[in-house]
């Protein structure tokens, strides 16, 4: 058995705060795997995980936003029931929707970087709703840009077929989440930045 014998190396207070937020947000995204708002006009389930990918980038920034999403993916990989429908396991990350899952940290990074114009956190509510909307659209483009080709590859579909199967029905719903993310950030109820 090995034991760490060096003296205790405490984590800085700011790091603890951001880390705690990233971890709790990862748990919240996981909890959202069980929420599905039924839609009367569509068989596609309306789940909220993409909303929190947007919010991770907007509120936690380009460092801790992606960390939060990586924690979410790792928690799923080691078997916690965090993916859609309350499933877990490494296989889901390599299955047909794996491309979407892997794109989440990258999308959160892009959204965080563009919103905060660098790695220092600013208040995203100061950006105009139009600017936030454009930034989130770029994030959404990353999500589909990775999700659709991966689905095409593992299911041996061409890109148009993969788009029909894995994107067409979801994009209108994601636009609603995009509007909701902008509204949430500008509600003035979100704590932002250090402490």
């Amino acid at each position: 058995m090995t034991t760490d014998t060096q003296s205790v190396d405490l984590v800085d207070a700011e790091v603890v705060e951001q880390f705690a937020r990233a971890a709790v947000l990862a748990a919240l995204i996981s909890a959202m795997a069980y929420v599905s708002i039924p839609l009367p006009f569509s068989p596609v389930p309306f789940t909220l995980q993409v909303l929190f990918v947007f919010l991770a980038g907007l509120l936690l920034g380009p460092v801790w936003g992606p960390v939060s999403l990586l924690l979410y993916l790792l928690a799923g990989a080691v078997g916690l029931p965090v993916f859609a429908g309350g499933t877990g396991g490494l296989g889901v990350l390599l299955g047909q929707t794996g491309g979407y899952l892997w794109s989440y940290p990258i999308a959160a990074f892009l959204i965080g970087y563009l919103t905060h114009r660098g790695v220092d956190l600013a208040d995203p509510a100061e950006r105009s709703p139009i600017a936030l909307g454009v930034i989130l659209l770029a994030g959404l483009a990353i999500i589909y840009g990775m999700g659709v080709p991966w689905m095409a590859y593992v299911l041996t579909l061409d890109l148009v077929e993969a788009f029909v199967l894995g994107a067409a029905a979801f994009i209108p719903l994601d636009l609603i989440k995009l509007l909701a993310a902008v509204a949430i950030v500008q509600s003035g109820r979100m704590p932002v930045g250090e402490g």
């Binding site: 705060e17 705690a20 937020r21 971890a23 709790v24 909303l51 509600s187 704590p191």
Partner: peptide, 20 residues
């Protein structure tokens, strides 16, 4: 969506601050 997102995030961040 906005209501659920705002409410859950507020609670989550309060939990995160206590955790920290």
């Amino acid at each position: 969506t906005t209501h659920l997102g705002t409410g859950t995030l507020e609670r989550a961040f309060r939990r995160a601050d206590r955790l920290s």
